[in-house]
């Protein structure tokens, strides 16, 4: 561990750049998934534990298309449309019925969905680890000591574009405004003639589409396996819980933060602590918030 610190500060400080870059790239993809979660959580109070499986499924759709010769970047819109349709269906058959229930129900129902999706992917695509080759070059910077793969850069760009589009959509379009209205006060929105059921359906479909987009990036950057979803779900939850709902800048910056924490933990302590680091971050934030809330409550007393 000391030796690893020594590398960072003494032997090859340039490594920091690599870690920061990787952290940002990972963070971008994580932030995308987390933003979808924040959306459904904030608007319809559904905690989707199948978030990670949506991501992996999006990746697999891109993989299937890539086998047919469609480049993953071209596949992105197709994946998003297909995932949106799936999201709509899931809403109609499942989510609509748990929305009214207490908070815990959606968590469990979507866990069931997660199991189902994993197994269906396993049956369709097989348990083998799959990758998509994007045929994009990797740049070596700083005398070959920092790698900058174009595919990661591209996905960062796609995340940025998507984020801007989502913000614009939420601010400007009628649908976006209706979604925000519903999130603020569902009853008032209904009184004003907004069909909240349709808003919910749309929001959930939008979330699925966003996850699908994240999945395409995952398939180009990392590897796909039917059972990998859970780690993306957990990290999405960690980010949303830490950042708070309805706060896109917060979600994105927390996503970057988590990406960096994971990279640095993996580097300094070893890869075996990488998964745990996300959880530790989540707990620290929760405890900090709790302490703050307690202080507030005491003031009220």
């Amino acid at each position: 561990m000391l030796f690893n610190l020594q590398i960072l500060f003494d032997i090859a400080p340039i490594t920091n750049i690599q870690l920061i870059l990787d952290g940002i790239f990972i963070g971008a993809v994580l932030a995308l998934g987390a933003y979808g979660l924040a959306l459904v959580w904030g608007v319809m109070n559904v905690k989707n534990l199948a978030q990670g499986d949506f991501i992996i499924l999006g990746g697999y759709i891109a993989f299937a298309l890539a086998r047919e010769g469609v480049h993953p970047v071209m596949a992105l819109p197709i994946v998003m449309v297909l995932m949106a349709m799936l999201g709509w269906m899931v809403y109609v058959f499942m989510i609509r019925r748990v929305i009214e229930q207490d908070m815990f129900t959606s968590l469990l129902a979507t866990f069931g969905l997660s199991l189902l999706l994993q197994q269906v992917m396993n049956l369709i695509f097989g348990p083998e680890v799959q990758v998509i080759d994007s045929h994009l070059p990797n740049y070596q910077l700083f005398n070959d000591s920092v790698t900058l793969p174009v595919v990661k850069l591209l996905s960062l760009g796609m995340v940025a574009v998507l984020a801007v589009l989502i913000v614009l959509f939420m601010r400007k379009s009628r649908m976006g405004q209706a979604i925000r209205a519903t999130a603020q006060d569902e009853r008032a929105a209904r009184v004003l003639g907004i069909n909240t059921d349709r808003i919910y359906a749309f929001t959930f479909a939008l979330n699925a589409a966003i996850c699908g987009a994240a999945g395409v990036m995952v398939s180009m950057i990392w590897v796909l396996q039917p059972f990998y979803g859970i780690s993306y779900s957990l990290r999405s939850f960690a980010i949303v819980t830490a950042a708070g709902l309805g706060n896109l800048p917060g979600v994105i910056s927390t996503g970057f933060g988590l990406g960096l924490i994971e990279q640095y933990t993996g580097f300094i302590l070893g890869a075996e602590y990488q998964v745990a680091s996300a959880v530790v971050m989540l707990l620290l934030v929760l405890v900090y918030r709790q302490r703050r809330a307690k202080r507030k409550r005491q003031v009220v007393r």
Partner: peptide
């Protein structure tokens, strides 16, 4: 002491996190 300050879904997710981390940490 740590967890019971959390309520609703935060308690659920916090405890889920603890269980996941416990398994990972035990492995080290």
């Amino acid at each position: 002491f740590i967890m019971f300050g959390l309520r609703g879904p935060y308690f659920a997710i916090g405890t889920l996190g603890i269980a996941t981390a416990a398994g990972q940490l035990m492995g080290t």
